[in-house]
Design a binder for these strands. Sequence first.
DNA 1: AGGTGTGAAATCGTTCACAGCC
DNA 2: GGCTGTGAACGATTTCACACCT
Lengths: 211, 211
Amino acid sequence: MKVAEPTVERLIQYRRLLDRLNSEGVHVVSSKEMGEMLGLKASQVRKDLSYFGEIGKRGVGYDVDRLREHISEILSQPQKWNIGLVGVGRLGEALVDHNAFISEKYEIVALFDVAETKVGRVFWGRRCYHVADMPRIIDELDIEILVLTVPKDAAQQCVDSAIKAGRIKGILNFSPTSVVVPDGVIVYSVDITVELEKLLFYLKHGGVQSV
Amino acid sequence: MKVAEPTVERLIQYRRLLDRLNSEGVHVVSSKEMGEMLGLKASQVRKDLSYFGEIGKRGVGYDVDRLREHISEILSQPQKWNIGLVGVGRLGEALVDHNAFISEKYEIVALFDVAETKVGRVFWGRRCYHVADMPRIIDELDIEILVLTVPKDAAQQCVDSAIKAGRIKGILNFSPTSVVVPDGVIVYSVDITVELEKLLFYLKHGGVQSV
DNA sequence: AGGTGTGAAATCGTTCACAGCC
DNA sequence: GGCTGTGAACGATTTCACACCT
């Protein structure tokens, strides 16, 4: 089944909301309520949820637990992914220890940097290797996902070098630059500068909808 | 002039690319070349750039310097914005010192936290105040933008309290949760967990286009 | 020949509106 | 009465295709 990107993004948010509702002891929720909590139209919520079969009860709403199970199933992963983080700067360190990277679906298994003060050391249980050793380590540790937190000038060459190992399938890029990758490799960019500039742009012009 | 959000996002990327090309001594660039470097179709680039008048030369391409000026003009800000950062955790610290927040258009002027070990201290030249004092400090320092790097359970109440000062116009939310705001306040969310999960989803399914 | 600018077409995503069920 | 599920309408964005310039 093919799912549009905005829908996937919302599914993830629904699941998170349902986790919260569940822990608060809420058992039933309507599309209207979910919409209000997430800043979405009720019809949007219903359409998203209906893609995967009839899961709600007309006249009542959705069973929190059942819906949560259902969405988790859609978002489930067939395996645990090994992640390598490149660039142990301040942002890199923040991410290594970040809640977002603690999950049964994935794990940061290696760090990479060029600084002699970092290579060889262990940060939060992960060893830091030299960037030049990436191809070998990626192979040895079966790393398929890269998190990039390097300065912009280093981003492309880190990617090129990591991809040579032929194992990398996805990259989460925090560097303020675009990177070019071969077909088959997926890149998502989290670009703080861009988000801030967008916010500024819409503050300057008449306010627009929130996102 | 009204500009669509995806267009604004790309304009920001064009400008960044042009800055780089300029520093590399490149003086002319075509829509095709820009597209390749940013992962966009040439027609997309041309359409974006043509919204603001004829700026390229047919048969030649775009003058890097002139185009850069032109886009900078569109993205320019009428004033310098004061930013308050809430949540001096590891991610917050990383951002305070992050390149993204060094600009003539905006400046982080105050930090907020609840931890006694942080309140009263100065981090990279910015004083950290108690979250309870936000309304007063926001008023005194004329803060109109909030950067949220607090745990998810604290996010909404921080927003509510900050907005009471009636001065906040925009929020850049790094907390892994949605926040509800009154009309007129713009929220952009940078959600690391969501981006990572999206990447995973499309790794599981047949790869999709990069972003 | 090579590259821009731009209407028109195609695609993608959201919202409406209402039938159907609880 | 209230709420879901969904085709159809709508709106937004991307891509095409080609006229036009140099």
